[in-house]
Design a protein around this nucleic acid. Structure first.
Lengths: 196, 196, 196, 196
DNA sequence: AATGAATGAGGTTTCATTCAT
DNA sequence: AATGAATGAAACCTCATTCAT
């Protein structure tokens, strides 16, 4: 029956770690997180054998929560609206908090790999939302999931740097959404713009 | 006039540091950079009394080089084209290499503050390019310099995460550029989109 | 209750540090002390987060042991004798090992401040001993605790410089004690001598 | 003719070093002293091949100046007064600034050795002053030069620790001088007091 | 003879991880 | 299963000394 304690500890650690990483960056000493969670370092390391493992777990945890929302959106809303809502949601929550992704990257771990195993497939959900929106004519047809993910990451990063100014954050999202709606452009300046 | 050696060392350090930070992240030991530049740690610390100072210097150095290009564009090209070219250029060179900006941010140094003092004013150049493009009708009128900078940071970050796929990088820029051209949107999904 | 180990380590460190500082000065690398105590550097720094803190702790530790003796003297001996005995005791043990006090002073920590908080009040004990001795007519009445402390420090320093010659050390103490007995002098040479 | 510059530099360095050591302790970086003297480090090291050598030189320089004064006193004043004046003078100027002696000691250099070569013999002067004073009955007869030197060192150290309180410094000197006048004491407390 | 940039050993401190209790 | 003290590699930085100019 000690299992109950253990599971509660794990959850608390995950929650606290997310909070602390967000507030103070991923460089906080492991001990700080343990203390904030009200456990000893030893306990933390029992649950996550490595700091890296903790990073991964927090990242995955976040992703899973997002995946759940995506599922609900797919089920409940109509195509165009669903896609845009999800996009906004991700960015507004500064969903991926780039710090994490960056920290993982630095550790030589690809965020894509980590995400791969998520229930239902995070990536898959985005794909579904995107395709439907494209079929409904709400999003230009020449882009793919990877483009969307890249944009999400980018906007999240932008939001982080300008976290002081909410108006800026909103305007950047607005611009990207606008860009997603219109048809493919022809020769902007150098002609680079058209998809290959 | 030993200054020749000194200046060469400083330049070499800056160059090497930029390279190493790009390849291995900003967590590399200071000593590594010194070794790579062929000098002792002491020399590095004589030039940059703190690791943070080195980071700042690399960042500034990059910015200055960009500022020079901006000046040339302002002089030579016509408004709309100049703006888009500069934008593309920045992103394609993954100009701001987010690692740096992130590291600076973590260290409590605001990129905005650092950039403020740059020769000729990097920010000022962007402002000029933007205003001209807006007057020429090539860019929507409701955005400001900070929005552009945020978008640049975002795209740079996006580019970093997906550095394998050049096509993705290009497409994301295309989308943002498209978004910059059109007039402000009204009620995308939730109506959040319009600037307050 | 791992505390047993911890306390043992702390005690061992204090003991070893006192010994090492005495033998080789306060410039010994922290690591040396750790090694001599049979622990890792980390352990040392867990107990004393700063070298300065270690110095302080050693100093305080010594003071506390002295304070205990002072208490016993106050309780057991008659006034004049008690004062002189304590004085001799302090000096003979080269009680304050000036190295420490000097190191602390250099570090900007005033010995007075540190001593202030000691259990039972080291300074208070001296005051008591002094006052009683003065009331008993064994010590001239125009001096205060600070004077006594200054003299102690001075004699300790003198003892250190001449540690080879026990006879010299003894004679200097004798002289000071003699000087403490007699009444205030009038015009030695320049008349500087009398307290203002 | 470059010799003039060289000698001036050496003098300036000695003067500045004494000042800086007094104000900030002997741990100041060599470079600081060079800067304060308006020369490069290289120059400093040409004159004093080692920091230790600089320390020694400053010490010696001070001693020589003192020796000169002693000579004048021996010539001009009457025995008792001469001795006490010299004693006071040394202490009031905090003449030996213990830091120096301590630093030398730490470096494994005996202050006595360094002083040995002084013109006229510093120690010899004290001996002369003392003997005369004793013959004139102004100082008790059972003490020797080493005792006096020890007391001087001690008082200088005491003065250093309590440099804030001039009254304390003066009183301690007064006590010691009083002690030097009176005849040998018999059994203070334990009988330790009498010279062996 | 003077300069000050370069050197690099070495000092203090941090922190992920292990392990005795 | 939990605790938190212990560990020690490694980070950053300082400074006496050398050496090219």
């Amino acid at each position: 029956m000690v299992r109950a304690d253990a599971r509660r500890n794990r959850a608390k650690l995950l929650e606290v770690a997310e909070q602390v990483f967000k507030e103070r960056g991923t460089d906080v000493p492991t001990e700080e997180i343990a203390r904030a969670a009200g456990v000893g370092v030893g306990t933390l390391f029992r649950h996550f054998p490595t700091k890296e493992a903790l990073l991964e777990a927090v990242f995955l945890n976040r992703m899973e929560r997002l995946a759940e929302r995506a599922e609900r959106l797919i089920a409940d809303e109509e195509p165009g609206s669903a896609f845009f809502t999800f996009f906004l949601m991700l960015v507004e929550q500064s969903a991926m908090k780039n710090v994490l992704a960056a920290a993982l990257a630095e550790a030589g771990i690809n965020a894509k790999d980590v995400t791969a195993g998520i229930r239902g497939g995070f990536r898959g959900h985005i794909a579904t939302l995107l395709e439907r929106a494209q079929q409904a004519g709400a999003v230009r047809g020449d882009i793919g999931v990877d483009d969307v993910i890249a944009l999400l990451l980018g906007l999240a990063a932008a939001g982080e740097q300008t976290e002081l100014d909410a108006a800026v954050a909103r305007r950047t999202v607005d611009i990207v959404l606008a860009g997603l709606k219109v048809a493919p452009q022809k020769d902007l300046t150098t002609g680079l713009a058209s998809p290959s």
